[in-house]
Simulated assay, not measured.
Amino acid sequence: MDLFNSTVAINYNLLPHGGTVNYFGKLFSKKEADHYFDALMNTIEWKNDEAFIMGKHIITKRKVAWYGDESYSYTYSNKSKTALPWTKELLELKRISEKQTGQTYNSCLLNLYHNGDEGMAYHSDDEKALAKNSAIASLSFGAERRFLFKHKQSKETVTLFLEHGSLLVMKDETQTNWLHRLPPTKKVNRPRVNLTFRTMMV
């Protein structure tokens, strides 16, 4: 299924079965999206991501940050992070995401991809610390990037572009049945900031 350059209704489920993914498109004007992109680049406490995979300590070029209502601990790839207090812009974006999706979120994992060389392999956001089948709201700022879903059993794929200032929501059993990734590309030489608002079990 290919959704390149298409306008998709907000209530349209991009997945054929086994989960729900809605693409809201651009929520902001270019001026507003540029403002948030600049603010996030300059106010977030970015750090290179770390992971322990098959006994090896890996430090990525991609940078990450973890924020929340409280100092939640979040562990993935055998590495733990402690949430920082919200910034002004993050709180604004959290409220906007909650209003658009009708959900509430208590934390946010941010990723900074400096260019198209940096991406993310297929994975599911199904860590035990996250509320099961809870919604994840994904905001994108900066370079437009291709985003893929792949069903864990049937291997069906869904592809779309995430635009500057756009919102994507993954919910219901999406993380149980589907993987997602951000593939590297030589066509992009600008940075992208991605925010994933989540619900930690407390």
Rank of each mutant, 00 (worst) to 15 (best):
K88E: 15
A65I: 05
Y74G: 00
G142R: 01
M54K: 15
E144M: 04
N78T: 11
K171I: 09
W86S: 06
M201K: 08
R192Y: 07
N194C: 03
W46A: 09
L40M: 04
L182H: 06
M201D: 13
I136E: 01
I58V: 15
D117F: 05
T159S: 08
K81W: 14
M54H: 15
N11A: 02
A83K: 04
T157D: 09
M201Y: 01
W66K: 00
G165L: 14
E98N: 10
S134W: 11
F161S: 07
M120E: 05
G55D: 09
A83Q: 06
G142F: 01
N194Y: 03
L90Q: 07
S6P: 00
A9E: 03
S166P: 10
W86R: 06
H57I: 11
S134C: 13
T174G: 03
P16G: 08
Q153I: 13
K152T: 03
L27Y: 14
G19E: 14
A137Q: 05
D172M: 02
L110N: 11
K150Q: 11
K30Q: 11
L3I: 01
K47Q: 15
R145M: 02
K81S: 10
L130M: 07
V64G: 05
T157G: 08
F4I: 13
N42F: 04
K61S: 11
K47N: 13
T176F: 00
H57M: 14
K79L: 08
T159N: 01
K61R: 14
R146I: 07
A129S: 13
H180G: 01
V64P: 00
T82C: 00
Q153K: 09
D49V: 05
P184V: 08
T75K: 11
W86V: 05
E70C: 12
F161V: 06
W66P: 00
H151C: 10
L160M: 14
P191K: 01
Y113L: 07
Q153V: 10
D126T: 13
Y122C: 00
E50P: 00
I53F: 05
I58D: 13
K63Y: 04
H180E: 02
A65T: 02
G18V: 07
V188H: 02
G102F: 15
Y113V: 06
A65C: 06
N42T: 04
A129V: 14
I136K: 03
L14Y: 14
K132T: 10
H180M: 02
Y76N: 05
D126I: 12
G142I: 00
D117T: 05
F37Q: 04
Y12G: 02
N115Q: 01
N42K: 01
V158R: 11
E32L: 04
E144A: 04
T185C: 02
S71N: 13
T87G: 09
Q100S: 12
N111D: 03
F4Q: 12
N48F: 12
L91P: 02
F147E: 02
S154Q: 04
Y36R: 02
A9I: 01
Y74R: 03
R181C: 12
N111T: 01
S134N: 12
V202N: 12
F4E: 13
T60W: 15
L93D: 10
D117I: 00
I53E: 11
T104L: 04
